[in-house]
């Protein structure tokens, strides 16, 4: 790897990290809590009773940090959850990229 390419790698990873940190700090405060397009459409077209039943259904597999929050930590937990997820994705992306790296 030449020095240029190694600098590229660091710069791109740092840019990804910067975007992830910025968004994880901002999203819990700025993101809208309104339902998304699919949920809104569901509220519009499914009768109230059926929709309420569907909402109550527990996910098939319990998630580690449901709804991008860490129970009991409020907004800090939301920042933490998105941050942890982003860093995990950075590592996962790097790992998957390395795993499939083309052999020359």
């Amino acid at each position: 790897m030449t020095e240029n390419k190694s600098n590229d790698l660091k710069t791109i990873l740092l840019a990804g990290l910067a975007v992830a940190i910025l968004l994880s700090v901002l999203a819990p405060f700025l993101a809208s809590s309104n339902p998304d397009g699919l949920e809104s459409a569901a509220e519009d077209v499914i009768d109230e009773h059926t929709f309420a039943e569907m909402e109550e259904n527990e996910p098939i597999i319990g998630a580690l940090m449901p709804d991008y929050a860490i129970a009991g930590f409020g907004k800090a937990g939301e920042v933490g959850a998105i941050f942890i997820g982003s860093i995990f994705m950075l590592g996962l992306g790097l790992g998957v990229g390395k795993l499939f790296e083309k052999k020359i």
């Binding site: 790897m1 990873l13 990804g16 975007v19 999203a27 993101a31 950075l90 998957v96 990229g97 390395k98």
Partner: peptide, 24 residues
């Protein structure tokens, strides 16, 4: 996947995850 695209893949993975948390 090469020296350039691996970090791009990683940065996009983190960036897409984070931006999907930002409901507008």
């Amino acid at each position: 996947m090469d020296d350039m695209k691996i970090p791009l893949l990683a940065a996009l993975a983190a960036g897409i995850f984070a931006i999907q948390a930002m409901n507008i």
